[in-house]
Amino acid sequence: MKSRMAYPYIVWLSMFIVLPLLLILYYGLTAVDGSFTLDNFQRFIDPIYLRVLWRSVELALLSTAICLVLGYPMAMIIAKTEIKRRNLMVLLFILPMWMNFLLRTYAWMTLLGRNGVINNILGWAGLPELNLLYNASAVVLGMVYNFLPFMVLPIYTVLSKMDQSYIEAAKDLGANNRKVFWKVIFPLSLPGVISGVTMVFMPAVSTFVIPRLLGGGQLMLIGNLVEQQFSYVGDWNFGSAISIVMMLFILISMALMTRFDKEQQGGVGLW
């Protein structure tokens, strides 16, 4: 009887979540005149667009890897600190999120730009000016900067909840610190690593703001491609097709990740 309380949302859900996606599907599968076609998808198989897709995946993977390498030790350090300071450190990781995302990214332009803070400092030191902005590295930096907390926090959560007796047992059985880490701590923290990886990779692969601001529009990623189709070109059909590809790509990789996670844990979900 109480299930009726969900009815308003079911209506909302159908109107604003299901229907728009169906519309996207409709546009993706039709030509401008409304006739059914697969042309939009075929157009995407063009090397130009595939290269865009590949570059997005490449940069997102690179950023994810950097986040993991930087974030894992950080998560370990936080998990080891005593409780009061630990909460403060977590808070410090969350705090930047409360500054508008675009502004934070924009601030990097101030830091990296031709007349930016870093180049000014280099100038004083008598060093040559560097071209830091408007290239792929700047985009990767922006992604790492914005998404690093997404990697640190889930890993930290898993590590801080980890039963210390596993670590003690491994030491008891003769494992030194390095072996304890690789044979016990790291495998047991995989659920956190996996959610961290997904939480960084997904927004990184679909972003269009970071490449626009820090890549200076020279760098077209798949997010920019979609935005362009809808905002400038007005080719909704092609734009919809790309959106569908992107959506499927992400949903499938998500599904694979969770599956891998479950297999690893023998069906015991920790996260």
Binding site: Y166, E168, A169, D172, L173, N176, V184
Partner: peptide, 29 residues
């Protein structure tokens, strides 16, 4: 350190490694 002692422990809640099977657990050391 514990890993250099010729002493082994059976822990209160066993602390069997959940990501390993029975064989892998016993073979750990």
């Amino acid at each position: 350190p514990p890993y250099e002692r010729q002493i082994n422990t059976v822990f209160q809640k066993y602390a069997l490694f959940p990501h390993m099977n029975v064989f892998e657990n016993i073979a750990f050391g």
